[in-house]
Nucleic acid binder design. Structure first.
Length: 216
DNA sequence: AAACAAGGCAACCGCCACCGG
DNA sequence: TCCGGTGGCGGTTGCCTTGTT
């Protein structure tokens, strides 16, 4: 079944070219084509890039896919407490300027940060029946959430130091995945900072990069 | 085990600014 | 100055996964 995209508001039927454009989730083959083409020709001129790469996608779609997913320096996985703290601080200063906030978090995309804010932070505001931009909620963030993050960062650094010492002593095999984050807040009404796991996918970007390296 | 609800996040949309012809 | 193409940004949508009943 092919994804048909969202309902189009236009009353005029789409042109033949528009009919050919693909929408929805990207396939591994499309990812590979885009990756190969950008590696060979560089970023920019996304519309012609899409045509040149033989992709039936809009330039915008290609750009988004590259920036948010395929770029080699994109970091995936949990947003760390350090990053969460930075996001909160920057949002106080910048508001919903996601791209500006993202510039301070290497490897993180504006989309990822925006999603984090909407799904985690706004959810908590809703639970507390506050407006996310209200002074009340900001005060809660400053007085409760941010100190908890700072505490958590401190705990993590001290425990990782202790772990390193133990590992040096016994030299066991290190786990290949980071351990799940510890339990949540004792404070009622404020959930855990982040409990999300690592995303699973049919293929990983690393797989695609590996495949691409082998082709070169 | 199945049905349903909620959460997470990839992808799309519309708008705007910039640039070159 | 105007206009079309392009890129960037923030907001929104809806699919998929996970949790709950």
């Amino acid at each position: 079944m092919e994804f048909q995209g969202r309902a189009c508001g236009s009353a005029t039927p789409p042109s033949e070219e528009e009919m050919e454009l693909r929408r929805g989730p990207w396939t591994a083959d499309e990812d590979l084509r885009l990756m190969n083409y950008v590696t060979a020709h560089g970023e920019g001129r996304w519309n012609s890039l899409a045509r040149g790469a033989g992709l039936r996608r809009t330039g915008k779609s290609c750009r988004l896919r590259w920036l948010n997913y395929l770029r080699p320096d994109v970091r995936r996985g949990n947003i760390t407490p350090e990053e969460q703290l930075l996001i909160l601080e920057l949002h106080f200063r910048l508001g919903n300027r996601w791209s500006k906030i993202a510039r301070h978090l290497p490897g993180r995309t504006d989309n990822e940060i925006k999603n984090y804010w909407r799904t985690r932070v706004q959810k908590h505001a809703k639970q507390l029946r506050c407006d996310v931009n209200s002074k009340q909620f900001r005060d809660i963030l400053r007085s409760i959430w941010m100190p908890r993050l700072v505490e958590r960062i401190r705990e993590a650094s001290s425990s990782s130091a202790a772990t390193a010492m133990r590992q040096n002593a016994a030299a066991p095999l290190a786990p290949t995945r980071p351990p799940p984050s510890p339990g949540g807040y004792a404070f009622s009404g404020l959930p855990d900072v982040d409990q999300s796991g690592w995303g699973e996918s049919l293929w990983s970007v690393e797989d695609i990069w590996l495949q691409q390296q082998q082709q070169l």
